[in-house]
């Protein structure tokens, strides 16, 4: 579904991604994992066409990005915008509908209805008329989540949605991910916490400028590969081992 072939991206002389090739099946909940500066966000941005590819090609459902933009929803990092901005929560969520509304048109009642549903889904409907600068970090993250949901896409790309959020927001986020998965959507999440990867996701891209491995969690997340990605820090091995054991026991219980 997402098909990357030989993707290389650089910022000036610094190479961010080197010769990345993988194929992500449709309908999976996938995590992009790797150390700081591994190019996790850059990979999402490359898929979204926000950074130019130096080499290689990305295909989505076999098409170029321009043909399928409407089917993709992108959720940037919370820190990427200035939250001291004269807008209300609802204004921002409604932006998720702009791709459907079209240029220079006013949002239709159905768009407002959909934005409202998204707001309810993340549990922020009571803050709809609130100013952005009155929100907590977790609430900001939920506003972005609602905006992404309002887009009604088939593929969701989320940049660090779990970074710096409270327990309530994490609960909402997990519910949303589960629901998207049930609806058969594909979700790709940049994730920084190795210890929870195995529990939350079924598919993993292990990244450190080049692709270390990509595939189902059980196959990819071996101590050896993680060491390769993170540069042989034994503490991490332990974390991963523990997480994998946990997942296996969950799977066994499930069966």
């Amino acid at each position: 579904m997402i098909e990357c072939r030989g993707v290389t991206v650089s910022y000036g002389r610094r190479i961010a991604l080197w010769n990345i090739s993988f194929e992500l099946p449709s309908g999976v909940l996938a995590a992009i994992v790797g150390p700081n500066g591994a190019g996790k966000s850059t990979l999402l941005r490359a898929i979204m066409g926000l950074v130019p590819l130096q080499q290689g090609e990305i295909r989505l459902w076999g098409h170029r990005l321009a043909a399928v933009r409407r089917r993709i929803s992108y959720m940037p990092q919370r820190e990427s915008v200035d939250w001291d901005f004269p807008l209300t929560v609802f204004d921002v969520v409604l932006m998720g509908r702009y791709g459907h509304v079209g240029l220079f048109r006013r949002p239709r009642p159905s768009d407002e209805e959909r934005a409202w549903q998204a707001l309810v889904q993340v549990g922020l409907e009571h803050l709809a008329r609130r100013q952005l600068n009155e929100l907590s970090g977790g609430q900001q993250q939920r506003v972005f989540l609602a905006r992404a949901l309002a887009q009604d896409a088939e593929l969701y790309l989320m940049d660090e949605p779990f970074a710096g959020i409270d327990a309530a927001t994490e609960g909402v986020l997990l519910d949303v991910l589960r629901q998207l998965q049930e609806e058969g959507k594909t979700v790709v999440v940049v994730h920084h916490d190795l210890s929870t990867v195995a529990r939350l996701f079924e598919w993993v891209l292990l990244l450190n400028q080049r692709l270390v491995a990509a595939g189902p969690v059980e196959e990819v997340l071996t101590a050896e590969r993680v060491r390769e990605a993170y540069g042989g820090r034994s503490v991490l091995d332990e974390v991963v081992q523990r997480a994998l054991l946990e997942r296996r026991s969950i799977v066994r219980e499930g069966q």
Binding site: M48, L50, Y74, P76, V81, D82, M95, Y98, G99
Partner: peptide, 10 residues
Amino acid sequence: FDAEFVRTLP
């Protein structure tokens, strides 16, 4: 508000 997000819209 969010030029990067807007650039991903069709």
